[in-house]
Amino acid sequence: MDEKNLNLTLKIWRQAGPTSVGSFQDFKVSVSEDSSILEMIDDLNNELEGDGKEPVTFESDCREGICGTCGLVINGQPHGPIPKIATCQLHMRNFKNGDTIWIEPFRAKAFPIIKDLMVDRSGFDRIMESGGYVSVNTGGVPDANEIPISKDVAAEAFDAAACIGCGACVAACKNASAMLFVSAKVSQFSLLPQGQPERYDRVQKMVMKMDEMGFGSCTNTYACEAECPKGISIKNIARMNRDYIKARATSENLEV
């Protein structure tokens, strides 16, 4: 195992609480190149705990890149240097012996830091609650095959629906915009026949909530798409904009 170990310097963001002043703390670690970056922090934490020191707070769950819980900015990039993976899938063989690695939380006004690398992304849930669904009740629905959907449309809706809600798009954007996240959900439903009855109402509600939660505007830099671990396309943003403009042009809801 030893010949595959890397000696690294970590600079990790430490912040005791939401209103505390944070700073980078240095750690020296030796890690197997087969480990993931989160396993490296597990090991570091186990050592810190053994020494009676406060471990680094960070979040993760499935460690398979699907739950969207983990999210670190590694050397300045959300989820690190390798495209189309989540932080938990970043393995140490992508680094070199002697490297220094900077590890920070996702930073955005709408994602306040709770502690160290843990942030509050509940703004995403509030947006989803504002309209990220088809309003059908349980029961009383037609047979599944009574709603035929062409393979291409289904595939496109799936690609939008693959978003894991990690927030890397917000962290990557200089405006901390949530347009990629919101447009992925809006697109999934605006592509599918099931989403049509609420199509224009939905897009207005979700965009309004997005603004209210403090996310910034989109200025088309495409950083979100570049950093998205699931490769969600910015085509979704264009689709959402079209729906939004159409909705606003015909909206009777003039005061908002």
Binding site: G139, V141, A144, I149, S150, K151, A161, Q194
Partner: peptide, 17 residues
Amino acid sequence: DQCVAQGVPFARDYGGL
């Protein structure tokens, strides 16, 4: 049936089923 009504994008064949 329920999941399809909610907009779950299951895999489909060329006929759309």
